[in-house]
């Protein structure tokens, strides 16, 4: 196999895995509220920035990561309470698009003010960029492998949780009919809050993974990632975990291949072209379900 092609495929799969994580995070809040948290991009950035800065204060790297994730989870609560809940008051309101995006931009500004607008180096968490294993006679960066494994593992865990546990079923119930869920004693508010915390944590993890690959992080980082994660989610079928994974990988691979062989300028454009083609051919996405109903 040609080395250039192989390196593009690898890069595509690993960024695709990150898009899949972002898509999964978008799915989580979509399940419970039909709202998407577009502030995810800034949470990715902030999680990586906070990790760098906590580590710079002399904290052990693992503690810095946990501390950053803790803060990001807290911001998830804040977003649900102040950006999404008020926006969902009116039935069918789409105010959350603006409020979550706006909160993301606000976080970006805060990060630039506190940490400066320059890119900072991101430390090696598990492996350094020099760690390789050999697969099919090709060198594969361990960092890329870790990204892929973490993404696949999280997606499998989430699927197991939703399909096999009572709480997973309760999440499904909240997505289908929150009023009925409440009347049946399901703690709707807590489940919604939980979905925002989990989605923020997913964004945080995705941010750490991508910062790890890129090696640096700056306040502007994360913005196009959330857009591409959104493309992946819609492509795979909004709300489907398998769809998030497949969508993420397809978007990651095509954009890297197009970027490598045609032009890097077309990298993101091709993702949106994919999105439009999917919307025209199959609006519910690859794995999207059409609702079962009978009046």
């Amino acid at each position: 196999m040609d080395d250039f092609f192989f390196s593009l495929v690898l890069a595509g799969i690993s960024v695709g895995a990150v898009y899949a994580l972002v898509a999964l995070g978008l799915n989580l809040t979509f399940w419970t509220t039909r709202a998407l948290n577009f502030g995810q991009g800034s949470l990715m950035m902030l999680c990586a920035m906070l990790t760098v800065h906590l580590a710079a204060q002399g904290l052990a790297l693992l503690l810095a990561v946990l501390g950053a994730l803790f803060i990001i989870g807290g911001l998830g609560i804040f977003i649900e309470r102040f950006a999404v809940r008020p926006a969902l008051k009116g039935a069918g309101s789409m105010g959350w698009v603006v409020s979550t995006l706006g909160f993301g931009i606000f976080l970006q500004g805060v990060a630039a003010k506190w940490f400066g607008a320059q890119a900072v180096a991101f430390p090696d968490i598990l492996f350094s960029a020099q760690d390789y294993v050999s697969v099919f006679g090709q060198y594969v960066s361990l960092q890329y492998l870790v990204v892929l494994l973490v993404a696949v593992a999280l997606i499998l865990l989430l699927e197991l949780f939703v399909r096999k546990t009572v709480w997973g079923q309760a999440v499904h119930a909240v997505s289908l009919d929150p009023e009925l869920a409440g009347v049946q004693g399901i703690p709707v508010r807590r489940i919604i809050l939980g979905s925002f915390i989990a989605s923020s944590l997913l964004a945080g993890v995705a941010g750490l993974l991508i910062a790890q690959i890129g090696g640096t992080v700056d306040p502007a980082f994360g913005f196009d990632l959330v857009l591409l994660g959104f493309v992946a989610a819609v492509f795979g079928g909004m709300g489907s975990s398998v769809g998030a994974l497949v969508g993420g990988l397809v978007v990651g691979l095509t954009s890297k291949l197009v970027g490598g062989y045609i032009s890097t300028a077309a990298e993101h454009a091709i993702a949106f072209a994919l999105l439009m083609a999917m919307l025209a051919l199959r609006p519910q996405g690859l794995f999207g379900r059409i609702e079962v109903s009978k009046a």
């Binding site: 079923q169 499904h172 009919d177 009023e179 049946q184 379900r289």
Partner: peptide, 23 residues
């Protein structure tokens, strides 16, 4: 809240054949 009342032992079969149709 509705869920707190439900935990107090209230059950309600709502108007309009409400159940989780996909389940």
């Amino acid at each position: 809240s509705p869920q707190a009342r439900a935990r107090h032992g209230l059950a309600h079969a709502m108007e309009g054949r409400r159940l989780f149709r996909q389940m």
